[in-house]
Design a binder for these strands. Structure first.
Lengths: 243, 243
DNA sequence: CGTCCGCTTGAATAGTTTCAATTGAAGTGG
DNA sequence: CCACTTCAATTGAAACTATTCAAGCGGACG
């Protein structure tokens, strides 16, 4: 399990940055239970089920969502390399949402039971986990503002700008083009809009030259312009713990 | 700093439940920097500002919110005794939202700088903090579903049922009557609705005998009925860490 | 070749917002 | 003690945004 392959895993990345002694390094490696590859379309964790594992995204894209009895679905967020998935289940006993792989994914797997050991033996790593949870909470708060207080046009612009920024931040930007493998229905479910209205709003952004999303790729010529339309203040939260 | 006065503070409560040795107890007490009383209407932390402190609500009610340039406001949640406030700022450097005391409040104050010390010296307490963050995230997820995928009637019913359940859980229920000091505008901003529509929806619930909110108090004769209308699955998350 | 799935389109409908004005209670100052 | 102001709750009507329904289109796949 070399450093390079695990570069996207936040729990390993920090390790590289912070410089620990041999014992700690060895421990973190033992905390990692293994890697896992899943194919596109597979459901990793189901709401209400206890999940014995925690994941970290190494490669590929997915989405976290909740479903109401009547079939309505709310996408909580789009998962990208570097994201920690399943802390909920680890800490609270069961998953609060479901997780689906949109593309094929490669994941870093940790055993839930080891988390407590990590807290006891590796406080710096424990702090990192808390930091990841705080970032996640921060994102959810921003999403809440978008869905609660923005118009459809602003919401879609906001979502595209946000996805673009996040994917660019993990190095998936090629001249303004980033992978965007989700369906329009996924975006609609993420923004609390209907599919039809989402479609029409996307067309409008395309017509105005602000964003072009087709064939699984998103092109944003000028992210500033898009972000202004969406009314975004802060581009992205900091990337690493502060301690 | 006796146990009783701090009973509502989660970081102290756990202490009582878990049974630590004398050293640990003493340390946690030193982690607490003091208590603070604020009057109704005061703003505790402002979005974008670095906050040197973390708070825990001992008494009183408040709300967390974000404001957009154009004046639109989104209430993230209603703060109640037992809630941890400001972990964001502690971990990420600055607040991601503002906090306002709706009633007079009494708070437990911790120094941001001490958090890292807590992680190093008190893993069990660090785990508790992560648990609180996970619970918070869980709540935000539920709110997202409500705002994104529920009708106005369902949203209002959901919010009232949720507030009622949470306040009852901290012992503020008197025969189905709980304090509800917020304004209709606050509820509207929490649910992504306009004030007018929120008002009309509240009237409808009142007319149908499901919930009566007036003069700063909320009466819910049958929480089950209200929850069914709102489409709530899980009543409340667990109350204490599992380890 | 037929079916499935995701995207697109138009029209009708419904839910929600916005505007504008009123009421009642509480607080202020002359 | 009476204007006068303020603030939250309330009401009705008009305007609009977004949803729902229904249908068509094209590519992928067996």
């Amino acid at each position: 399990m070399d450093q390079v392959r695990c570069a996207q895993c936040p729990l390993r990345k920090f390790e590289i940055f912070s410089g620990f002694d041999e014992d700690e390094l060895e421990f973190t490696q033992s905390f990692k239970a293994g890697e896992m590859a899943v194919e596109a379309g597979s459901t990793l964790m189901l709401e209400g089920q206890p999940s014995p594992q925690i994941f970290t995204v190494l490669e590929g894209l997915g989405l976290r969502y909740k479903i109401l009895e009547c079939g309505r679905r709310q996408v909580l967020n789009f998962a990208m390399p570097g994201d920690l998935i399943g802390l909920h289940a680890a800490v609270m006993g069961e998953m609060g949402h479901s997780f689906e792989a949109t593309t094929a994914m490669r994941l870093c797997v940790f055993n839930r039971a080891d988390l407590w050991r990590l807290y006891r033996q590796q406080p710096a790593r424990a702090y990192d986990v808390t930091w990841l949870a705080a970032v996640e909470e921060h994102f959810l708060g921003e999403t809440l503002v978008a869905i609660g207080r923005r118009s459809a046009l602003e919401r879609v612009a906001w979502a595209l700008a946000r996805v673009h920024a996040r994917l660019a931040a993990v190095g998936l930007d090629r001249n303004g083009l980033v992978p965007m493998p989700w369906r329009q229905q996924d975006l609609a479910d993420a923004l609390g809009l209907s599919l039809v209205h989402t479609n029409k709003t996307l067309q409008r952004l395309r017509r105005e030259g602000l964003a072009r999303w087709s064939d699984g790729a998103l092109l944003v010529p000028d992210r500033e312009a898009l972000a202004t339309l969406a009314g975004i203040e802060s581009p992205l939260p900091p990337r690493r713990p502060l301690i």
